[in-house]
Amino acid sequence: MTTSPTVLITGASSGIGATYAERFARRGHDLVLVARDKARLDALAQRLQEENGVKVDVLQADLTQSADLAVVEARLRDDARIGILINNAGMAQTGSFVQQTGDGIERLIALNTTAPARLAAAVAPRFAQAGTGAIVNIGSVVGFAPEFGMSIYGATKAFVLFLSQGLSVELSSKGVYVQAVLPAATRTEIWQRSGMDVNALPEVMEVGELVDAALIGFDRRELVTIPPLHAPVRWDALDGARQGLLSDIRQAHAAERYQPQR
Rank of each mutant, 00 (worst) to 15 (best):
V142A: 14
S168F: 00
S164A: 13
G166S: 12
V142K: 01
G149Y: 11
S151E: 14
G143S: 07
Y153D: 12
L161M: 10
A158I: 14
V169R: 11
L163M: 15
S151A: 15
V160G: 00
L163N: 07
A155W: 06
F159Q: 06
A155S: 15
L163T: 03
F159W: 15
M150K: 12
L163W: 02
V141P: 05
V160Y: 03
S151V: 10
K157L: 10
L163E: 08
S164Q: 07
P146N: 15
A155D: 08
M150A: 13
F162K: 02
S140L: 07
S151R: 12
N137A: 06
F148M: 15
S140C: 11
T156W: 12
S140A: 09
V142M: 06
F144A: 14
T156S: 10
K157G: 07
S140I: 08
A155Q: 07
G166W: 00
A158K: 09
G166K: 04
I135G: 00
I135N: 00
S151G: 10
Q165I: 00
P146C: 06
M150R: 11
A145I: 09
A155I: 03
V142Q: 03
A145S: 15
T156D: 08
T156R: 09
F159K: 06
V169E: 07
V169T: 01
G149V: 13
Y153C: 04
Y153M: 11
Q165F: 00
S151M: 09
A145H: 12
L161H: 06
V141K: 09
A158V: 08
L167D: 07
E147V: 08
E147D: 11
K157M: 07
G149P: 06
L161Y: 02
F159R: 02
G154S: 13
V141S: 04
L167P: 00
G149M: 08
L167I: 02
L167A: 08
T156N: 09
V160A: 05
M150F: 11
S168P: 01
V136H: 01
G166P: 02
I135F: 00
Y153G: 13
Q165R: 14
L167C: 09
S168A: 08
Q165K: 10
V160E: 02
Y153P: 04
I138D: 03
G166V: 01
Q165L: 12
E147P: 06
F162M: 02
I135C: 00
E147Q: 15
M150W: 10
F162H: 08
P146H: 13
G139R: 01
G143E: 09
L167K: 03
S151C: 07
Y153I: 15
L161N: 04
V141R: 09
I135K: 00
F162E: 10
P146S: 09
A145W: 02
I138Y: 01
L161W: 05
L167E: 06
I138N: 07
S168H: 10
Y153V: 15
G154L: 09
G143H: 05
L161T: 13
V169A: 11
E147N: 11
Q165D: 11
